[in-house]
Design a protein around this nucleic acid. Sequence first.
DNA 1: TTGTATGCGTTATCAA
DNA 2: TTGATAACGCATACAA
Lengths: 370, 370
Amino acid sequence: MARKPDEHGDKGDDATAHWQKRSAGNKALTKPRSRRGGGRPTIADVARKAGVGAITVSRALRDPERVSEDLRRQIQAAVDELGYVPDPNARALASARAEVFGVLVPSLTNNVFAEVVRGIYDSLSDGPFRVQLGNTHYSGLEEERLLQVFGPQRPAALIVAGVDQTPTARKLLESAGCPVVQVMETGPNPVDMLVGFSHFEGGRAATEHMIEVGYRRIGFIGARMDPRSQRRLAGYRAATEAAGLFDPRLVTTTPVPSSVTLGRELFRDALAKMPTLDGVFCNNDDIALGVLFECHRAAIAVPKSIGIVGFNDLDMMQSAFPSITSVRTYRYEIGRRSVAMALAAIAGKRPEQRVVDLGFELIRRESTAR
Amino acid sequence: MARKPDEHGDKGDDATAHWQKRSAGNKALTKPRSRRGGGRPTIADVARKAGVGAITVSRALRDPERVSEDLRRQIQAAVDELGYVPDPNARALASARAEVFGVLVPSLTNNVFAEVVRGIYDSLSDGPFRVQLGNTHYSGLEEERLLQVFGPQRPAALIVAGVDQTPTARKLLESAGCPVVQVMETGPNPVDMLVGFSHFEGGRAATEHMIEVGYRRIGFIGARMDPRSQRRLAGYRAATEAAGLFDPRLVTTTPVPSSVTLGRELFRDALAKMPTLDGVFCNNDDIALGVLFECHRAAIAVPKSIGIVGFNDLDMMQSAFPSITSVRTYRYEIGRRSVAMALAAIAGKRPEQRVVDLGFELIRRESTAR
DNA sequence: TTGTATGCGTTATCAA
DNA sequence: TTGATAACGCATACAA
């Protein structure tokens, strides 16, 4: 039952848009009273009304402490009456610094980064800072390009996902002239500040858990395989090798973007390649869910015949049947923390810890309850 | 197995950040050579190097047609050599128009809006426009506040989710002085332009399908219940009433944000309230998945004992076991289309159709295969 | 604590 | 087609 109506226009409206109408009668107003159509009040208007200098208004708005009680009140009254709002562009131009946080993430729809971004937004919604969000599509080149676009804007801070910037990107970050926070990972050489956790350790902990509860032919299934997934795989490998359980044929990966459906397919592949498989550590929760569904469909008992572990601990992991063991990470908190650190740096109080590891937690559930 | 390492600072680094170092030796350079530390090349530098006026450089960059072949080449050479990039803030100030799309969505993590946003970003990544994203948290007041913040920036266009703006918000949109596109819904009185689909018809189609295949005690389960969900519910009600099947006790809703876990709980509630339930139309796919999991857990046969229909058709619907019937919507395409319409309006070619209905499609799957 | 002069980098206006 | 001049709205530097 598809419903895709023909597109229909409005009844004959003239070609002029509502928002263009205003430019109609403005022709011969002789007075060179600004090119702007809007005629929004400026700081000068406020100053005049309050009977003070423009700079005093500017100060009263940005740093009330530095203006006497009296004037502050007069100015506030004038501001309210006129409905004055500072022009962020003029402000940025004059101060050589925009009240903007540049944020670069590899994906907008991947829930993991969406959570980080949400944390950033929530932390910034109070203050004067806007957010300039960029989608790198998991591409280093895109990242470079976006950094080049962000630069001229003179952002107040930069928050970027990951620690694997290209040399060019890294150089751009270092010369950005503002605090930089790398998020979602830990690593040895932060450009400036860093908040995240160890994907390697997360992968290792997940795998060790499976070994501990008795799984012996544990596969790794991973999609997209970005640097973070590579590190989870490395953690998996470290754990299986330590237990003498590693076998390259147990590893199934693809650069294809992750999805539940892909999880099903990869699991089928893995099983075909390695019929004795008795457990899988998945790249992420979508893949894990796909594995679970495929097990249902193929009537493979979970956790008895196959154990499953995911990564990130999305809400659905706890509700799945059986519920799925996963590595819980603190994405929202990472977003919040990154802003807090940047804000501190902007305020001149650089945080003592430039590297913050928020850790993770393995949540054991039915999918590995042997 | 939690791993939450103590936070550790860097080895004693002085309090000065890398990005502040540069301000060190700039003290007595006597020459009032700009307050800016960076000393990035300006349009004047390019003009000098190319031996032309600044305004010609400006024109050559924005509208090459209006500059002679010769000068254009010289200017381009100078630009490349100097690595000149226009300052967006200065540009915005001088032209009274920022190359920014303001985008307002109720949630950053809800996949539905994330897809719309992704469509918007992908459509805008080529051109000069930046995106200013705002999260309204499903609140009309937040929306007003964000609109007030966006206004002074003089955005080139505004894209907002939904058609239920408060009167104040609507006024702000109308007086924004730029094209406005409302997305995700259809409706009678667009502020300017509109692209979406009918949630009412989607809800009705889903319900009619369930009736058609033989379900008789069909419940509605809905979380969050934003205006779009309300319309889906209205569609459900229209269909059940038309068939003489409506009963208020079949409806289970909550303002609580949606999640898979919540889906399980609401389904339990619904079943307790109405043990004869034989099908549920869910608000969205997360809820539907929760219902499915709860059915598994309670050993309720799907689709035999209970039929399930979701909304939006996320990828996991096709992979679930059994696969879940859902109403497919075109979020990404809505995002792209909204940008295309805004861009056309900016270019002075307002699209003939100011209202675009992208429709939906009911995807029948195992969860309703009676 | 407050004000004056000036600059920020770019584009609109108008004339050539 | 090109250019000189004057905004654009605000903040810095410095003086009062």
